[in-house]
């Protein structure tokens, strides 16, 4: 099983490249303090230094802070928020979706109407409102992003549970006297996991984008350097000093692209029937 999985995953070059890029970003986040021991907020050189200047590889910003240091430290915020908010969203979404799909009837109706309530409000606007109310901090950012990201996961989990619930192995579990919790957690959940994992990996990418957009608007955690903040802070001088917003932008692009590639690779590897085309019966 797992060997087949890796073989299928490795067959997809895009996914392997994505995984390599993602690993680079993770290493960058892990060793940020080693690469740039000084705080990314400290002013190290003259402002407006272009890239490839003496002491700053990617130039300096309007206050003389090192852009490269900002990018390296910013990866921590992006990954931290991307992963935790997706984990929270995954937990809320799968729990609600599983309950709705398994029990059906009025439980399903109630949960799905609740989900639709969230889906009718534009994601970003809701996130902005939530962060503004709770004052910007890592915690409120994670909460806001999680709250706007769970509905699609809930719908997906519900669909999987709906179709698996009437499968014969689930009925067999009922007739052999398994408890409901056990049926949900041990019989259905493992079988519905592959599409959910794929969707969750893409949720991470969206969460990173959302965090960047919030920081761009000045709603990021004021104590942590973030890519979105860097672009936001330098947007007024973009014509004089392109590098200040260009490099953080590239960092976001590469990270999100890497996660999407990995997600697609997971999709191909976990759902081989959808990926392989034109095979005879």
């Amino acid at each position: 099983m797992s060997r087949d999985f890796w073989r299928a995953f490795a067959n997809n070059y895009g996914a392997v490249i994505g995984l390599a890029l993602l690993l680079a970003v993770v290493l960058m986040a892990a060793f940020a303090d080693v690469i740039y021991p000084r705080s990314p907020w400290s002013m190290v050189t003259t402002p407006f230094q272009p890239p490839l200047s003496d002491d700053v590889l990617l130039g300096s910003d309007t206050l003389g802070r090192d852009i490269a240091a900002g990018i390296v430290h910013g990866s921590r915020v992006s990954l931290l928020i991307g992963l935790t908010s997706s984990a929270v969203a995954l937990f809320i979404g799968v729990t609600l979706g599983a309950l709705a799909g398994y029990f059906g009837g009025w439980v399903d109706d109630a949960i799905m109407r609740f989900t639709e309530l969230f889906q009718t409000i534009p994601n970003f606007v809701l996130a902005v409102v939530l962060v503004a109310i709770f004052t910007p901090s890592i915690g409120s950012l994670v909460a806001a992003i999680a709250i706007v990201s769970w509905p699609p996961l809930a719908r997906l989990a519900r669909g999987e549970f709906l179709s698996l619930r009437s499968r014969e192995f689930v009925l067999a579990a009922v007739t052999t006297g398994q408890s409901t919790t056990r049926i949900i957690l041990r019989e259905i959940l493992p079988n519905s996991l592959s599409p959910i994992i794929v969707a969750a990996s893409l949720t991470v990418a969206t969460a990173i984008l959302l965090e960047s957009a919030l920081s761009f608007l000045g709603l990021g955690d004021p104590n942590m350097m973030s890519w979105g903040y860097m672009i936001g802070a330098s947007r007024t001088v973009i014509r004089q000093a392109w590098w200040m917003s260009f490099f953080p932008g590239i960092a976001i692009l590469i990270t999100v692209l890497a996660i999407n590639l990995v997600g697609e690779g997971l999709n191909d590897a976990l759902n081989p029937k959808l990926a392989r085309k034109g095979r005879g019966r």
């Binding site: 499968r167 014969e168 192995f169 067999a172 007739t175 052999t176 493992p190 079988n191």
Partner: peptide
């Protein structure tokens, strides 16, 4: 009262070993 189902491809949970599938009832 126990049941045998129609579709042998759908009635066994693909994630478990045969021993676990058969003994799920007694263990419960």
């Amino acid at each position: 009262v126990q049941m045998i189902f129609q579709d042998p491809y759908a009635s066994l949970n693909p994630r478990y070993r045969v021993a676990d599938i058969i003994s799920q009832g007694p263990i419960a």
